[in-house]
Amino acid sequence: MTAALEIRDLVKTYPVRNAFGRVSGAVRAVDGVSFTIPSGGVYGLAGESGSGKSTIARMIMGLTEPDEGDILIDGVSVLGQGERAKVQMVFQNPGASLNPRRTVGQSIKVPLVAHTYQGDRKGRIGDLLDMVQLPRHFADRYPHELSGGQKQRVAIARALAVSPRLLVLDEPTSALDVSVQAKVIDLLEELGRQLGLTYLFISHDLSLMRNFAQTVGVLYLGKIVETGPVARVFERPGHDYTRLLLASVPVISTEEAAMRPVIPLINGEMPTAEDLMALRAGLNPKETAR
């Protein structure tokens, strides 16, 4: 069986310019990233700001061209193709990703028109609202009349409009209250089962990732430093950065607290990722000498 999404050695470099606009170097925002998501699977990409997770999402969506590597959807390379109906995206902030001057129905209609949907558009919009468990008459409402959770449901309906295979979820619930988040996640799981959707779930929230993704990749400075089934990675993290991330999660129970790795403090303080790496790099030679 072919994977729904396959990423091969993806590289994206951005030029670094000095104050006069001259190129003085390059930063490898994405540095040789590979992973595959089986059809119907949920792959979690965990990373902090600057890790390259949004750049990967943009390249999959065709909004940014990679420098090297390949992106295959259902075994077919999609590089160089413009519109990709098979992959759609749900953004972090539904307040900003919906046009405030369009009604919900008009917003959902945009992808139908862009991808020349031939059937009954009005009926399709109603069906999509059903799918995300919103009343059909919401089609006539404006975003400001909706709550955050409702707006995110509209964003999901819009992403589903052209029947994609793959949804890229970029922090889909981080702008929502925790009780609303739980409901949106339930909806995404339900839709995934019903429609056989494949998800690429991008988040910094490791607790949420543990509950939603099956496989996780931990991104640090453009590289996947650790990958594997989410239970294994979280229970027996193999990389220091994964350990630091897990140790940093604010948790609500003693069981979770006990699960967090113990990180050596530097001068009584939680180390930064760079510090921890430097510490290990400095310690390792000594350890091998012993």
Partner: peptide
């Protein structure tokens, strides 16, 4: 209770 139940756990479900 509902609020606490809605929080995803690091230990899984």
């Amino acid at each position: 209770r509902d609020l606490i139940a809605a929080v995803p756990r690091l230990t899984g479900r």
